[in-house]
Design a protein around this nucleic acid. Sequence first.
DNA 1: CCGTATCCGATTCGATACTG
DNA 2: CAGTATCGAATCGGATACGG
Lengths: 138, 138
Amino acid sequence: MSLSDTSQHANCSAMSDVLNRIGDKWSVMVVGMLGRNGTLRFNELKRLINGVSQRMLTLTLRNLERDGLVTRTIYPEVPPRVEYRLTELGKTLQEPISALWDWSAENHHAIVDARAVYDAREDAITAETTRKVAYARG
Amino acid sequence: MSLSDTSQHANCSAMSDVLNRIGDKWSVMVVGMLGRNGTLRFNELKRLINGVSQRMLTLTLRNLERDGLVTRTIYPEVPPRVEYRLTELGKTLQEPISALWDWSAENHHAIVDARAVYDAREDAITAETTRKVAYARG
DNA sequence: CCGTATCCGATTCGATACTG
DNA sequence: CAGTATCGAATCGGATACGG
């Protein structure tokens, strides 16, 4: 099934829960990092992924593990060591995510520019309204 | 810049806001629908996208317009008619989104299965804990 | 028809503190 | 080191009502 095959009748809810996970910022980051580095420990991931909190990294990794995209290996040592890596299924996800990543990098500037144009226009409208109000008042 | 080029030094926050929009379920749906159908009116989109509220569709379309991915054309008629279509930039987004969509369709079952296995194991652990507690009590 | 405005419950997420 | 638990602020998002 491809996008063009997906008729109105196809149940989009099946895609939704996949997209909910895929679309999650932290999940994308984790898959990206594990894809590049192979195997990483919890705190290595935490350091690599800028801005993720311990809580969110834990939740993200649990969800990815639950979905069969990441394996979690515990080494019963002191201090404890836990290693994460992509499963075979997880590796297949690398390609579409990489495509999205590339697109983001390539078009980020265009989007930022478009936003600036849009916001400038919005501000102009607001300013004009303000002037009209001021005129009505004056 | 590709995924493999993205070093630890690269600022991931640039990707983040792109991914925030891309990862949004409704945005993906809207881009998918507009990509397939070319031009759609507000209520056509609302009907095609299962479960979207008027509020969310409006917000999603505004954000896509702001990001330069969608154009909004108003025809000053009675009753009013507003048409949405992808910009050139929006069309380039179709391919990576389509790849992700295909991956979702292809691997949805594997993920659901993995979740079932994971949850069954979790339940087993919980049950065992419960038994131990019951034993300790009894 | 195509929105905007408002309310409000649900969810998210960071911060913090604590554990094996 | 690698988590878990809890709390509160913030955001999300549906429902509803209203407007051009």
